[in-house]
Every structure is written in structure tokens, then in C-alpha cells.
């Protein structure tokens, strides 16, 4: 049997959902793989919704809003774009980014919706089943997705993404405007750090581990793990556990 992907779509009420309805009214055919969740605005799409969908086995997730500038709520789709970009950057770390997509469909673009869904379905088909889906999902991938969901939900990432437009387009609290390049540099670093920190937290959930063990499991340098441990300790998220010989272990708080 050929692979039939499970695809979840988040559609805004005013443009993309209307466009999807128009495809129906015009009887434009597209593959029956997509299931749709309607929200009022694409800006409502919390990053965790996208990751959660992947965690429960979606092979692909598509977020659709009004064209930029057309948002029924003025600028919600710009906010959606920022949040989506963050999720995508996280997913890139585990090579999952091509399973999610953000695009725009207006209420008059039934044909565009139909062809977009057809194309996205085909694209997911060529990628094959998600390792996080099916009857025997890959545990490690699930752990990674969990870390991403938590990292994306962390107050640090949410604050960064929430302030991005204000910081880069207007000014920060000191009256400075940060260039987009500079912001992206900080942002990309934060993505990597927070992902690893939440991976560490995930691994420590079951049992206490040493820095060395963590470094081995995560395939990153132990000095970097140590830095993360210091940060996590200062945030009150981990603490020292028992000593394994002379090696201290950490456990999650």
C-alpha cells in the first residue's frame, strides 16, 4: 500500500478557511489527507500546536493565513510568521523543518488552496512517513520533539519572538533598533542553546546523569553541556544529585 500521509492544517477564519471553502464550492479536487483546525487568526497558532501535532503523528503540518497586509486583525499574520519561523528553526535541528509549512491563501484563492494542498501532500509523500508517527514511533525523535516543544514554550524564546518585531522594526527599551542580522544571530544561538538545555532536562527526567553521560548521549562537547548545566542550575531547573565516584550527577528539579 502506498504511503498516505496524515496532514494537519491550521487555517485562519477570514482568508484561508474561506479560500478552502471556495475550493469546495468550485469543486476543485485535492488529496483527502488534510484535516483542518480553524482558528480566528493565524497569529493564534501557538508554536506548541505545531510541535504537538508532529508529536501525535502528523507527517506534515501546514499553517495558512491571510496574505501579509490583508490580515483581518491588522497584523496577526506577521506575528504568525515570526512564531512559525522559530518553530522551523528548532525543527531544522532535527531535520524536521521540511515537514512544516507556512503560506498565505486569500478568500478568492480556492484554486491556490487546492494546488497548495496537493503540492504539500505530494511533498510529504516524497519525504515518507514521519519517524514520530505510525505504530512504532522513534522514541528518540519523540524526546527531541518534546524538547523542542518545551524550548519553544520557554519564556525566553517566547519573549524573544514576541519582541522581535518591536526590537527590529521599532526600538528596544534603550531606544535602539537592533538590525535584523544582529537579532537573527542572537536568536539562532538561543534556538540552539534552548534546544540542548531542554534535551538535557528531558534526559534528566528519568534518572540523574553526569555531564559526561549527557554529552555522550547528545553528541555534543562536554564543556558545552557544562555551560548549560550552570545556566540550568542558576535558573533552578536542575540540581546536583549523588556522586558517582568523583563525578557529580545532576537531576531535574
Amino acid at each position: 500500500m502506498s504511503f498516505e500521509p496524515k496532514i494537519l492544517g491550521f487555517l485562519c477564519n477570514w482568508c484561508s478557511y474561506a479560500g478552502a471553502d471556495l475550493a469546495g464550492v468550485s469543486r476543485m479536487q485535492y488529496p483527502p489527507n488534510i484535516r483542518v483546525i480553524r482558528v480566528m487568526c493565524s497569529g493564534r497558532i501557538d508554536p506548541k500546536f505545531i510541535v504537538e501535532a508532529l508529536r501525535v503523528g502528523a507527517d506534515g503540518v501546514i499553517v495558512l493565513g491571510c496574505h501579509l497586509g490583508d490580515c483581518h486583525y491588522l497584523e496577526g499574520n506577521y506575528e504568525a510568521e515570526k512564531k512559525f519561523d522559530m518553530v522551523k528553526k528548532f525543527l531544522k535541528l532535527i531535520d524536521f523543518d521540511n515537514r512544516v509549512r507556512l503560506d498565505w491563501v486569500s478568500a478568492s484563492e480556492g484554486a491556490r488552496y487546492a494546488s497548495m494542498i496537493t503540492e504539500f501532500t505530494d511533498h510529504i509523500k516524497t519525504l515518507g512517513p514521519s519517524p514520530a508517527g505510525g505504530d512504532n514511533p522513534d522514541d528518540e525523535i519523540l524526546e527531541e520533539l518534546k524538547a523542542i516543544e518545551e524550548a519553544a514554550g520557554s519564556d525566553r524564546m517566547r519573549a524573544l519572538v514576541g519582541r522581535e518585531r518591536k526590537i527590529t522594526e521599532q526600538e528596544n527599551v534603550y531606544g535602539e533598533t537592533v538590525s535584523l542580522d544582529k537579532f537573527n544571530e542572537i536568536f539562532d544561538l538561543a534556538i540552539k542553546d534552548e534546544y540542548n538545555r531542554h534535551r538535557i532536562l528531558g534526559l534528566l527526567e528519568k534518572e540523574s546523569k553526569s555531564v559526561k553521560d549527557l554529552a555522550k548521549e547528545l553528541k555534543i562537547d562536554s564543556s558545552i553541556v557544562l555551560e548549560h548545566m550552570i545556566t540550568l542550575k542558576s535558573r533552578g531547573q536542575v540540581d546536583f544529585g549523588e556522586l558517582l565516584g568523583i563525578t557529580p550527577t545532576f537531576h531535574k528539579l
Binding site: 487568526c41 497569529g43 493564534r44 501557538d46 486583525y73 519572538v161
Partner: peptide
Amino acid sequence: CGVCGATCT
């Protein structure tokens, strides 16, 4: 619209 909810840190 729900943007604040999706953004709230």
C-alpha cells in the same frame, strides 16, 4: 484574534 495568547511568555 488570539495573538496575545500565542505570545504570552
